[in-house]
Design a protein around this nucleic acid. Structure first.
Lengths: 164, 164
DNA sequence: GATTTTACGTCAACCATGTTGACATATATC
DNA sequence: GATATATGTCAACATGGTTGACGTAAAATC
């Protein structure tokens, strides 16, 4: 069905190998997303809240539109979790100075602390896997995952703090 | 916050690197899971149906309990999609011979065809990423993802057809 | 052989998180 | 001044998860 011997690299890819690559991603994502669940529940939050504070924390001052673009959800869906996070003091909005229609999002000190607590087991999982696999493997991990991402989004993943 | 210079491998892991590793997984999963959506919609199915036929296809004769263990969902949740897949002729159940309480799951020829159609863009995405990254990177990708998976599940990911 | 456990199914209520569509407001841009 | 953009909100609905209760058939145990 899938016959990929062509391409720049003479890599022989069987259907079995491709499906295994798919499954690895499924299992890793399954386990790594479940890590923060117990902590989130203590706050009455879910995974959507986690994703939101993660990306606000990584991109302080991100606009609502940019955040929607990363999460690939609608504003109505984001609104639910974002308004809760704002109401409970984990996120603040500041009116944009260059464009005052924008609501630029920031974590409060409490938001930063929450994000750190919630992501701690995830970071520990990644750290362990990285250490066990070694530097060369980590490089390959990054390279392949980056190649799996839609091309137009790749550059955005690599730069972390942006002021655009 | 995270200071990991210890361990067997002298890998210097910054918080930034760990968070980037987390984001790579998020983005890759986001894009790769969206590939089959348009085809699934033509059948009135969703991602849950896809996961179900994927794992039945990869493990012909899998029991309901085993499938639940892989998907990490409840039988009530599986029941919804599984009964639809059975009713519409993509999956069949056979009573177990060794244990006649079991319902062993198989894809029908139609189910196999559906799974192939639905997974085609995903396999193409993985094949392209693998080819572009090269064999050494693919090895690292596998190694790190395997390390991210809960230890007790790792061996199950590697063996594909099981007769247990 | 009777009892208990296991594998599976089903009903019902509910929850988290996504969607579409319509409409409102403030601000920027033409 | 007219139009476009960034954001917010209301409402209805879809998908796919949960818990809890209960039923049946078959296996396992006493």
């Amino acid at each position: 069905m899938v016959d990929v011997k062509s391409g720049a690299n003479p890599l022989f890819l069987t259907d079995e190998e491709l499906r295994q690559g798919i499954e690895l991603l499924f299992y890793a994502y399954r386990d790594f997303t479940s890590d923060p669940d117990s902590i989130l529940r203590q706050f009455g939050f879910g995974r959507a809240h986690h994703r939101t504070i993660h990306f606000i924390g990584r991109n302080p001052g991100i606009s609502v539109a940019e955040l929607l673009g990363i999460l690939r959800i609608t504003k109505q869906s984001l609104s639910r979790v974002l308004s809760q996070l704002i109401e409970r003091g984990f996120v603040i909005q500041r009116q944009g100075t260059r464009d005052r229609r924008q609501r630029l999002l920031h974590l409060t000190p409490e938001g930063i602390e929450l994000e750190e607590r919630v992501s701690a087991p995830q970071r520990a999982r990644v750290a362990r896997a990285y250490r066990e696999a070694g530097g060369a493997a980590v490089e390959g991990y990054r390279k392949v995952l980056l190649g799996l991402i839609n091309e137009q989004d790749r550059h955005g993943v690599l730069k972390s703090i942006k002021d655009e």
